[in-house]
Nucleic acid binder design. Structure first.
Lengths: 299, 299
DNA sequence: TTAGTCCCATAGGAAATTCCGATCGAAAGT
DNA sequence: ACTTTCGATCGGAATTTCCTATGGGACTAA
């Protein structure tokens, strides 16, 4: 076939010992075995590498040249060989996590210090995008895990729940409309419901919660983020569904009123998703544990 | 044992095709064979390299890293493999030749253009030293061939004659001593015989020619070169043996008289010497041919 | 659900490579 | 000539690699 590491290793030994017998001993093989491999190497290279002399050998000029290259190769191989990951504890190296936009701003600030505490040798790389995009990237191997609202569909994915995030309604403090608390879906003025743009799962969830499955001709500004949405709310342009985890951040100003829903309060389930084939099930479970251990405490 | 090129080649194929079946095909082996080698590689490295998915595979981050190294190694190996000397015509590459001091100055000027004409792709590296030194270097592989006066002794050497170089006597034009021409050895005033320093074969040859095998208490200035020697001659400090090939160069000035010996004229045999084990017998024969073809024409 | 498909892993035996011990042959030294 | 040294060669054993056939998981399509 052509050129094996075995041949190179033996050749290197021979070049070092300058003697077939001793080189064979150093390589822990018999002299004929080494002899044959060297012969083979010479043949495949089409070059005489060593000069057989009475007292040992001498490298030909070609041999010297080849030795250079072989040494370099062996060195590199050795470096590669020394790579054996001790497959130490879980959560090592770089982990790339994708997070949906209606979770990221509220979770990330808690998540980062929390995970860094879990493992100092953990590199985080975060990406924010809508669920579909994240799932594609996950399946393409561009991400290691995704944090999104369940359920999520896609081939070869595995999922674990992180926490439940209840929904509330947000309305301007000085709103004309008055909402009873607790709220029932019938009270929602669908025409005044503000939504995120297409693609955000929260948009669909809001529509679902407010029982507007049918009538789809509603005012639809298509905001880009929760923050934008709530800015619109505070200007009394309407009302919007807000996840519990977003409340502390988004309602720091006091011009928004949060109205709870009547039991059973609607909610979304935030989960961690990864490729089943990644074989990192245990790591992911540990990661999920860490996340849910710090996330709900964001009050 | 650990890490073979085979594994790396298969891994590279797999990384390229991202599919075991296709990679196996590309590598001209069966899918299980490839599978096994990849498994082996993963085991020896102690790292999961690929993620097996329903539709093909995905490299893990470790896999990407390993691929980098593997590619580099394979590239280097390929470069090495492409080294196969076409073992083209003889006399290629660099040839290191050692020449004794009483030949070099007169032969080299002819030799260099002559050999360059023989083969354009021939690199010459010349070294001048006394025979013993040259032979040691030859045996150590520091030289490829030696041009010296025969016979030469040393293990594992092979020899071919280049040409015969007759001896003459050189004496000052206005010398007090008068020499009959042709000369017989009895006419030589041994006390006035000038010699090169120890180590030069010409010194011994001169002593031998002049029949001074026994009496060794002669004026012995120990000159470093023929040129020095002849300068001494021209100042009538004595006479010296001069090889025919040195005459044109050394007697350009007209203050030296060259006196031939009576038949049979004494001479030295200049030959080419190389290691039998070099396996370059044919090249050496060709080289010798080239040298003797240009050398005697130095008149 | 059930059958079908895709894809990689495993199993078992065949083929190729590599290895060893014994021996040969060339080159020097005694 | 006799011995020593050292690499090459030989024949068969041990190991590695390979192939075909099959298994088994994960989706898909009835």
């Amino acid at each position: 076939m052509g050129l094996t590491l075995r041949q190179m290793r033996y050749f290197a030994a021979l070049a070092k010992e300058r003697h077939f017998g001793r080189a064979a001993e150093a390589a822990h093989i018999s002299q004929p075995a080494l002899s044959a491999q060297i012969l083979d190497l010479e043949q495949t290279l089409g070059v005489r590498l060593v000069e057989r002399k009475r007292n040992g050998i001498l490298l030909t000029r070609d041999g010297e040249e080849v030795l250079q290259q072989v040494s370099s190769i062996l060195e590199q191989v050795e470096r590669l060989e020394g790579l054996r990951r001790s497959s130490s504890g879980m959560l090592d190296g770089l982990v790339r996590i994708g997070i949906i936009p209606t979770v990221a701003p509220y979770l990330v600030p808690k998540l980062v210090p929390c995970l860094r505490e879990l493992s100092a040798s953990l590199g985080l790389e975060l990406k924010e995008a809508v669920t579909d995009r994240l799932i594609i990237d996950l399946q393409d191997g561009k991400l290691d895990a995704v944090i999104a609202a369940l359920p999520v569909q896609g081939d070869g994915l595995e999922t674990v729940s992180l926490f439940t995030d209840r929904f509330f309604m947000a309305i301007a403090n000085n709103a004309e409309a008055v909402l009873m608390s607790p709220l029932t879906e019938t009270q929602v003025d669908v025409d005044r419901l503000l939504l995120l743009e297409e693609g955000h799962c929260l948009r669909e969830q809001a529509l679902s919660v407010c029982g507007t499955a049918g009538k789809r001709s509603l005012v639809n500004f298509g905001a880009t983020s929760m923050t934008t949405l709530l800015q619109m709310v505070s200007h009394d342009m309407g009302m919007t569904l807000i996840p519990e985890m977003a409340i502390p951040t988004e309602t720091a100003r006091n011009d928004i009123r949060i109205v709870p829903f009547a039991d059973p309060a609607p909610s979304r389930e935030i989960g961690l998703i990864w490729r089943r084939s990644s074989g990192r099930r245990d790591e992911m479970k540990a990661l999920a544990e860490a996340i849910s251990g710090c996330a709900p405490a964001n009050r």
